[in-house]
């Protein structure tokens, strides 16, 4: 009896830790995606992750691993299509993401489908928590390195280039970061909600900030707080964590609308 409680406490602790780190990194990256007017890219890529998660489940691999692999494939496909047609990127993203959703729905085994769509943090192991911390921290530091260059490029690509910034390389790193973060995020909130995990904290922060320092701070803070409170709510109510996290995040967004600067 006691042993069960202890192991459950540990699991809760692990899921809280994983959630907090992933949430913080998601908020930080989201602040960049919002300024680059790519708010829905996270959403679209979340869907691209689904068939990858399905294959990983079938093969007995970690779902984030499968998701990441498919995300890279999806980004590559979008890039390839972009070279072959003059359709706007968002149309191509649209094609790739619904196709992935359809394929993913067929591939993911039915018992795990709900978990893949909405996330599940009930069985976070120590290893998974450590991996989440490690990868979130890594993503965080890479974002920090490329942040000012990407901000300048989103203000003006020409200005960035005239400062000697390799805009294409930065964008590549940026897409890679999104793929990595989405792959981590799908574990927590699932493929359907991962876009919201990234964007809502930044949108909330945008409402409350007049400068970049505040904006970055609040994006990360709301990312962390939402995941923390969402996970706590899951622990106390037993309601699924993914939707709880997004609802907490949305709640803060609504408050920010009232306090808007």
């Amino acid at each position: 009896m006691i042993a069960i409680t202890e192991s459950m406490t540990n699991e809760f602790l692990f899921s809280l830790i994983a959630g907090v780190f992933i949430g913080g990194a998601a908020g930080y990256l989201g602040s960049l995606m919002l300024t680059k007017r790519m708010a829905l890219v996270g959403d679209a890529l979340g869907h691209v992750a689904l068939p990858g998660m399905g294959l990983a489940l079938l093969l007995g691999l970690d779902t984030s691993f499968g998701a990441f692999f498919f995300l890279l494939l999806g980004i590559f496909l979008i890039w390839l299509f972009e070279m072959r047609t003059s359709l706007p990127t968002e149309a191509l993203v649209g094609v790739v993401f619904v196709a992935s959703l359809a394929a993913g729905f067929l591939i993911v085994p039915e018992p795990e489908l709900l978990e893949a769509l909405f996330g599940d943090i009930s069985d976070v192991s120590l290893g998974m928590a450590l991996a989440s911390v490690l990868f979130s921290a890594l993503i965080f530091f890479i974002i920090k390195r490329v942040y000012s260059g990407l901000i300048l490029a989103s203000i003006s690509g020409d200005l960035a280039k005239s400062e000697g910034i390799n805009v294409q390389r930065q964008n590549f790193i940026y897409l890679f970061l999104i793929a990595a973060l989405v792959a981590l995020g799908v574990k927590i909130v699932g493929t359907l909600l991962v876009g919201a995990l990234v964007i809502i904290p930044a949108a909330t922060a945008r409402n409350l900030s007049t400068n970049l320092r505040e904006y970055v701070f609040w994006s990360i803070a709301f990312g962390i707080i939402s995941c923390f409170l969402g996970a706590l709510l899951y622990i106390y109510t037993g309601l699924p964590a993914g939707p709880m996290i997004i609802l907490v995040s949305t709640f803060f967004f609504l408050i920010s609308l009232v306090l808007k600067k």
Binding site: L152, D158, S162, E214, Y215
Partner: peptide, 27 residues
């Protein structure tokens, strides 16, 4: 060394950023 003054930067309105932070992007 060349300094470039662009026509305007409409997208800067999308980003909450102080003038000091903008100039600091220049390292």
């Amino acid at each position: 060394k060349i300094g470039y003054v662009p026509q305007r930067l409409p997208f800067i309105k999308d980003i909450p950023m102080s003038v000091g932070e903008f100039l600091k992007l220049k390292k």
